[in-house]
């Protein structure tokens, strides 16, 4: 049941992309354990605003774990300590009274900090622009039922397609690699017959763009899958490796 806890927050503040950032200490007192993590920051922000200080900037939107907007590193872990949970769905009952929480932005060279806890993840969009689609134009699709997809393939594709593009995998990876994100999109599209036609070109273009964006490479640390709020498995990375090796481009 609900109770109140007091916390100390050590939060990364950075004015903009070019400014130097630093940690600042804040008190979060009488936090209701039923609050979500973002609601806890809301409370701190209301207080800061009233004191005339600039509130902490953080990305969020749906607050139900699907838009992929939220995400910060709490005590070294992207999206905080609870597995398979986005920051917006993490609740304060997972923390103890008196705890100090260190909150930082997702860090990677390809994700420059925009302000405080907000980072620029547009690199993900550009990787998708390179090939994360099926080249079908509106209007030229045949009847949906003419194409059968085995249940197994449909489920494998769906498992991978659940990725919300939050970037936690990159932030968790000691190499700042985007393998889980890119692998998830490749698995989604490459296992389906609709996407198979362009498979070779897709894997090449996306990997090339991924490298160009400055993401690291994979040394199979598997931190990414542990941090992924959608439980995307590193099997998508293996599949990407295989497709890349076999592709004719």
């Amino acid at each position: 049941m609900s109770k109140k806890i007091n916390l100390t927050l050590k939060i990364w503040r950075q004015k903009n992309r070019h400014a130097k950032g630093r940690f600042e200490l804040y008190k979060a007192d009488a936090i209701d354990t039923e609050m979500s993590f973002l609601e806890m920051i809301d409370v701190v922000n209301e207080k800061l605003t009233k004191e005339g200080q600039e509130p902490i900037a953080f990305d969020h939107d749906c607050r139900e774990g699907i838009c992929g907007m939220c995400g910060a590193v709490v005590n070294g872990q992207p999206h905080g300590p609870q597995r398979a949970t986005t920051l917006c769905q993490l609740h304060m009952r997972y923390f103890k009274d008196g705890e100090t929480l260190v909150i930082e932005p997702l860090r990677a060279r390809a994700f420059p900090v925009v302000k405080d806890l907000i980072v620029d993840r547009s690199a993900f969009d550009r990787v998708l622009q390179a090939g994360g689609f099926v080249s079908v134009k509106t209007g030229c699709a045949p009847d949906a039922q003419t194409l059968l997809v085995s249940k197994h393939k449909a489920e494998t594709a769906m498992d991978a397609a659940q990725c919300i593009g939050c970037g936690a995998c990159v932030a968790a990876c000691p190499n700042g690699a985007a393998m889980l994100f890119v692998g998830a999109k490749l698995t989604h599209l490459n296992v389906l017959p609709q996407g198979e036609v362009e498979k070779d070109a897709r894997v090449h273009r996306m990997v090339k763009q991924m490298d160009k964006e400055g993401f690291g490479s994979c040394s199979n640390e598997y931190e990414c899958q542990a941090a992924c709020p959608k439980k995307i498995s590193v099997s998508v990375i293996a599949r990407m490796n295989k497709d890349h090796l076999r592709s004719s481009e």
């Binding site: 099926v134 079908v136 209007g139 699709a141 059968l148 085995s150 449909a154 594709a157 389906l192 609709q194």
Partner: peptide, 22 residues
């Protein structure tokens, strides 16, 4: 109906039965 056709062609992984139908 065209929407469903279009989305399937794009690779939207709609639920399917064991025979592979939507």
């Amino acid at each position: 109906n065209h929407i469903i056709d279009q989305c399937v062609a794009q690779g939207v992984p709609f639920a399917r039965d064991y025979a592979g139908y939507l």
